[in-house]
């Protein structure tokens, strides 16, 4: 189905926001001003956006340690996120969570997660809630090629099948879990979706560096899971991560020229621009204008994050039900 001009512009803008958010963090982290562990989502934008462009606030997502892209795509506030990562008390989680724990439950974003594999069971619960409510909403769990090896993921898949939860397992295969290749760690012949199939789910596969592939695949997946009684489904997207596992990773496990190659040929933003301009759907100038606007929005979020209030010692003791 043909996307409207507005929908195309919106999808591109969403991917670009994630890209520039991450590129800027990559730069700012070098200065030492940002604390903690940060895992950047650059390279995988087409997955988050191709999935979340189909969702409403009533649909839920559960994310991972590499969560910025999912959060932004699901509608978390850019400024609130930047402030959180900078550790401000004005951040989305008051500076208590940081990069790995961004959440905005009101937006249907049930949390990034520092524990690999912890998200899928949570998405089963959210998917059961969707089933009970019967309004055709869904819960989506994002997992990597590393997380797919956790027992929690296996348990969640089987439980989603037997409870007919309205849960979608989105596997983002970026070929690496930390410093380990998926060819070593994933036993099912380089394939994750076949595991979900074996648990009794209908599965799809798509190109996670191509927005249109993700978007069209997800249209089918969602049409299926939104039908009450159909139960869960799974989809595997082949994708790329452009930066290290975490900021500071020397990435010696990559092959010669690998990063240049994936930036050249597997960049979802470049691919999007080429397809829409080749097809005459958008002009370069349209996209250039968005690029400039997004850069300014990210710049503004950093200005705000730097100026925002810092937390104090008293803030440690709030939001805990019992104090001693």
């Amino acid at each position: 189905m043909q996307l409207s001009r507005d929908a195309l512009l919106r999808a591109y803008r969403q991917m670009k926001v994630i890209r520039e958010f991450e590129e800027r963090l990559h730069v700012d982290i070098q200065t030492g001003e940002i604390a903690g562990f940060t895992h950047l989502y650059c390279g995988q934008e087409a997955v988050a956006v191709g999935v979340c462009e189909h969702l409403s606030v009533e649909d839920k997502i559960v994310s991972t340690h590499r969560g910025h892209g999912h959060c932004l795509a699901k509608g978390c506030d850019v400024n609130g996120m930047m402030k959180e990562i900078w550790g401000s008390r004005e951040g989305l989680c008051k500076g208590k969570g940081g990069s790995m724990h961004i959440a905005d439950v009101d937006k249907g974003m049930l949390g990034a997660n520092g524990i690999v594999g912890a998200g899928s069971p949570i998405a089963v619960g959210a998917g059961i809630a969707c089933k009970i409510d019967g309004k055709g909403h869904v819960a989506i769990t994002f997992s990597g090629d590393g997380a797919c090896n956790q027992g929690t993921t296996f348990e969640a898949m089987n439980m989603a099948v037997v409870t007919k939860a309205a849960t979608i397992f989105v596997f983002e295969n970026n070929h690496y879990s930390e410093h380990t290749g998926f060819e070593y760690a994933v036993g099912t012949q380089k394939d994750i979706a076949s595991r979900a199939e074996a648990f009794g789910m209908k599965v799809w596969r798509g190109d996670g560096t191509d927005f249109f592939s993700v978007f069209e695949t997800m249209r089918e997946v969602l049409e299926y899971v939104r039908v009450p009684g159909n139960g869960p489904a799974a989809v595997e997207f082949d994708t790329e991560r452009f930066f290290g596992h975490f900021e500071g990773d020397p990435q010696r496990y990559r092959g010669p020229g690998e990063l240049d190659r994936i930036r050249e040929f597997r960049d979802c933003l470049k691919n999007f621009r080429k397809s829409v301009t080749d097809a005459g759907l958008l002009e370069h100038a349209d996209l250039d204008a968005l690029d400039a606007e997004v850069l300014e929005a990210i710049e503004e979020s950093v200005r705000q994050a730097k100026a925002a209030d810092r937390p104090t010692a008293e803030d440690v003791l709030t939001d805990v039900y019992i104090s001693y």
Binding site: H179, T180, G181, F182, Y184, Q251, Y253, G255, P256
Partner: peptide
Amino acid sequence: GEDIVGGMGTPGGPEAIGGI
């Protein structure tokens, strides 16, 4: 343990990087 060799199944090969 996880990544105690570091680089298994990657172009860089075993011990490309070692544990964190």
